[in-house]
């Protein structure tokens, strides 16, 4: 039997040059749409490019003006708010929902799984417009609904510098919690039934069961959601663009709207390129930090 396997392996090795055609399409697409753009943006970030296409060497000038711009620091602050609120909240609510749906429902299980996932499938454009209406002063249902239970307020949540970013963050939580839930459901399925039964026999329940059995067993899901949450934070665009366009006065600006404004509205390609590189570097550093401290495996298993 081993010799048969050996022969097969030798046979497989003989055909290798042709075999590389299998990965060629993916590599070509990667080179054209990912590697080339990254190289281009890094190179262009070193030039001052004007609307008329005239460009001259600027060295690190674009980066200096990025860092000197107070709006950039508002963007950084908003990204911190975004990541520090959306990631844990979506994980906790999503995890609890997963546990409740899997453990306490039977006939209605598919219904609940689908119900909380519907916002994930709903077009983000639709979500942005519907929630703008929900938040609207005077005719929005949020203000009306809260006033009916005795909470009165007269703020335009999206129009005030102090509340705009948080109002959009709530929408993001509504949109993506169902995704976390489904990931945790998948994670729960990987826990061996015997493990749960053994834990229960030993008297583990409630908080203890969660702390000593479920959370460690779900560490793969936690890692994946953390990673996806960071990338998702950095690519936030449609919700903010459509609900506030980064306003009022840049108060809810995020990298997406900031790069769009400089790259496509103001035509400052060099400056927008430097911003893009900054985003790439942040993504890279965050990914490396996670790999360093949490391990590299991208998986739903613990």
């Amino acid at each position: 039997m081993p010799s048969r396997a050996l022969a097969a392996r030798r046979h497989a090795r003989r055909q290798r040059p042709f075999h590389h055609l299998f990965v060629l399409p993916a590599l070509a697409i990667f080179a054209l749409f990912v590697a080339y753009p990254i190289g281009w943006v890094a190179y262009t970030s070193l030039f001052a490019v004007s609307l008329h296409g005239v460009s001259h060497w600027a060295g690190l000038g674009n980066y200096r003006s990025v860092l000197d711009n107070p709006t950039f620091w508002i963007v950084v602050r908003n990204m911190f708010y975004w990541a520090l609120i959306t990631i844990p909240v979506q994980m906790v609510i999503g995890g609890l929902l997963a546990w409740a749906v899997e453990e306490y429902t039977h006939r209605s299980r598919a219904l609940f799984r689908t119900l909380f996932f519907v916002p994930v499938i709903t077009s983000v454009v639709v979500i942005a417009i519907v929630w703008s209406n929900i938040y609207a002063p005077y005719y929005g249902i949020l203000q009306q609904g809260l006033s009916e239970i005795g909470i009165h307020f007269q703020t335009a949540l999206l129009g005030s510098a102090g509340t705009a970013i948080f109002a959009i963050i709530i929408v993001n939580v509504w949109e993506w919690t169902g995704f976390s839930m489904l990931m945790y459901i998948a994670g729960l399925k990987t826990i061996p039934v015997q493990l749960l039964e053994a834990a229960r026999m030993d008297g583990a329940s409630g908080i203890n069961l969660a702390r000593f059995v479920l959370v460690p067993a779900l560490s793969g899901v936690n890692r994946s959601l953390l990673l996806l949450g960071v990338i998702g934070t950095l690519q936030t665009f449609p919700l903010v663009f459509l609900m506030t366009d980064g306003g009022p006065d840049h108060a809810s600006e995020v990298f997406g709207t900031y790069i769009f404004r400089h790259g496509f509205v103001l035509g400052q390609t060099g400056y927008a390129s430097a911003l893009s590189v900054v985003v790439l570097v942040i993504a890279l550093v965050m990914t490396l930090l996670q790999i360093r401290f949490l391990g590299s495996k991208f998986s739903l298993k613990g």
Partner: peptide, 17 residues
């Protein structure tokens, strides 16, 4: 690595490409 690249950072060079 591609999985970790935010679209935000690619949109300007992709438009040029």
């Amino acid at each position: 690595v591609t999985l970790m690249v935010p679209l935000t950072a690619l949109v300007v060079p992709l438009a040029i490409l």
